[in-house]
């Protein structure tokens, strides 16, 4: 009797597991895994004559042409230094954005972590709130601020003019792209840092002070090393989306400020070279995976180092 009910329990549990995990699994296999595989396949095909793709198998009676599979898109990518340069530039923009975000976010995260408990949630909410407004609007706001008629442009150009430097355009420049990137991604840096800093044991700092450490020594030798996991995860959260971003350069950048994202977008909506666009997307995926892997590895090795010492 009891044995039977245990058996029935096990069966019910298996059924429950199947019912709960089945539908989301199925949905994601169809709409996430399959599309990803299609993207890989597409990157090895020939582009069609009028956009789209050439068929894999030559249609009956067709003149011999470009059918089947090919690595042409990748040859194209590695054959022209231009694409390597755009990838390198995107990495540069992502790294600069990450660094600026880190410099801006660290003091704020430290302050929040050291504030009274009752203030912390409010201060965090105030960081997240602007991030919840529409993405395009946050970029658009900088079009106003950096625009030629804005007070900021007027001020900067007046100051520069006093030194005899000609008027500069703030908008549609690499500078505008960087400002937009930082603005859109800043909360991604603040939150992981705060989560980490909040957990620090303040008695460590007291101990360091008792041992005669100055403020800087306490920061560089206690707080900073302990916060490295937060620094790494925040950096990954900023670096990765910046790498694939096309809207910011599209709206705030000039014609020369093309990043990977813009290049990909153009293959699907501009020149319509799907295989090349897919190959670029695969390269971006590989870049993202290696960055994510590196961040995880760094975070783990710093933790291990600490455990050993």
């Amino acid at each position: 009797m009891i044995k039977g009910s245990v058996k029935q329990d096990a069966r019910e549990n298996r059924a429950a597991k199947f019912l709960v995990s089945g539908p989301p699994l199925l949905f994601l296999v169809v709409f996430f895994v399959a599309p990803s595989l299609i993207m890989v396949l597409t990157s090895f095909r020939f582009p069609g004559e009028f956009g789209g793709l050439a068929p894999i198998a030559a249609p009956a009676g067709a003149s011999p042409g470009e059918y089947g599979l090919t690595a042409e898109a990748y040859q194209f990518f590695f054959g022209d230094i231009l694409y390597a340069r755009i990838f390198l530039k995107s990495f540069g923009v992502a790294a600069t954005t990450t660094l600026i975000c880190l410099i801006m976010a660290y003091p704020l995260a430290l302050l929040i972590a050291r504030s009274k408990k009752s203030f912390r949630n409010l201060m965090v909410l105030l960081v997240v709130l602007p991030f919840a407004s529409n993405f395009l609007i946050r970029i658009y706001a900088w079009m106003i601020i950096l625009g030629p008629e804005s007070g900021l442009s007027y001020f900067i150009n007046t100051v520069l003019g006093a030194f005899g430097i000609g008027p500069v355009a703030l908008l549609f420049s690499p500078f505008a792209v960087l400002v937009g990137m930082v603005y859109v991604h800043l909360p991604f840096m603040v939150l992981p840092l705060y989560t980490n800093l909040e957990k620090h044991d303040s008695s460590l700092l007291d101990a360091a002070q008792d041992l005669g450490a100055t403020r800087w020594q306490r920061f560089w030798r206690v707080t900073w090393p302990l916060s490295l996991p937060g620094v790494f995860s925040g950096s990954a959260l900023v670096f990765i989306p910046v790498l694939g971003m096309f809207a910011v350069p599209d709206i705030l950048g000039g014609t020369g400020d093309i990043l990977i994202g813009n290049l990909i977008k153009d293959q699907f909506l501009g020149t319509r070279d799907w295989p090349f666009g897919s190959a670029l997307s695969i390269m971006l995926t590989l870049a993202v995976l290696s960055i994510a892997g590196m961040a995880t590895w760094f975070a783990r090795s710093t933790i291990r180092q600490r455990a050993e010492s």
Binding site: A34, P35, M39, F268, S278
Partner: peptide
């Protein structure tokens, strides 16, 4: 965690081709 553009591109290809 992925850049959104990758999901966008792969779904576009999937919808149109498959």
């Amino acid at each position: 965690a992925m850049p959104e553009i990758l999901l966008g591109v792969s779904l576009l290809l999937f919808f149109l081709q498959v």
